[in-house]
Design a protein around this nucleic acid. Structure first.
Lengths: 155, 155
DNA sequence: CTCAAAACGACAACATGTTGTCAATGTATA
DNA sequence: TATACATTGACAACATGTTGTCGTTTTGAG
């Protein structure tokens, strides 16, 4: 029996996967430094962002799905944010246990502060890159991600 | 004082960053399933790969740098792999404490088994994607990563 | 050569994520 | 309606990564 070989595309995609791993680590560490002054971490910041961008208050499970994480991981962060007064729980008329998560004043202020750091930072990081090239990169990564999600819809 | 705004490129790159986070999680979970039959995990598999692809036996610190992780993280995995008999330490003539890591027969066999699963899987995942597009994606992600690395060379 | 700085392994504390399990709640089907 | 199924939060165990610190070893500047 002869082992399969990488197609040209398969070999290139393997390199891309390893690059995604490296970049992910660098982004997390850069994000931690970026928001360190606000008392946030990359993970908490990202959760605040998911809450911020939701058009309405949502449940933890909904937030987790929107971020591609398990609800348990997001639940822990949300509970910590609640202890710190950055988010609050609101009764959910549609589900007694699954309360809705909202940003408090303090949470909004801290998220806004993080955003004020993020914008010049990401603008500088993007300097010299072409908008179209960034969009095509996003597009390809999205395609690959969606293929993986259809392989195993769970988290 | 007026807050800075996202440049068009900055806004696009922000989306890209979030996509990298999502894709990273999906890749890890897909990788775990892919090599579950071999007793490996994504992390152990990746470390074995770094050892495999090094042209010569290397130290843990070298491996960590090649993977973009801290040496402590890689050290723990390597020590576990050593307990399981997948890697072995070799004396390093150039450095008494920093021993060189090599794959044992068993480690080579298990890595080869994982690779036999990876190839058809990644080929299928890459199906219909253009080689040039994958390469351009890799190129842009590398540029961003190197910019982040030059910001904070550590790790 | 000497000595300060850097690199390295070891260890601990902690952050973040996963899987697995359970009970409570909501949904849908017979 | 009644009952099976899915969703959700809670809790625990564990994997993986980071930062910080320490002592040892190597390296390099003067």
């Amino acid at each position: 029996m002869i082992d399969a070989k990488h197609s040209r595309e398969g070999a290139a995609l393997t390199e891309l996967v390893l690059e995604v791993f490296r970049l992910n680590g660098r982004l997390l560490s850069a994000g931690d430094k970026l928001v360190a002054g606000t008392g946030l971490t990359s993970a908490r910041w990202q959760v605040l962002g998911a809450i911020h961008f939701a058009s309405e208050p949502q449940t933890v499970s909904w937030l987790a799905r929107s971020m591609g994480l398990t609800r348990q991981a997001v639940q822990r962060i949300v509970n910590e944010l609640e202890s710190d007064g950055l988010v609050a729980f609101k009764e959910n008329p549609a589900h007694r246990r699954a309360r809705l998560v909202t940003l408090t004043r303090k949470g909004q202020a801290i998220y806004a502060a993080a955003d004020r750091h993020q914008k010049p930072w990401i603008n500088a990081l993007a300097k010299g890159l072409e908008r179209g090239e960034i969009d095509r990169t996003l597009s390809l990564l999205s395609i690959v991600r969606r293929r993986l999600e259809s392989e195993s819809p769970d988290n």
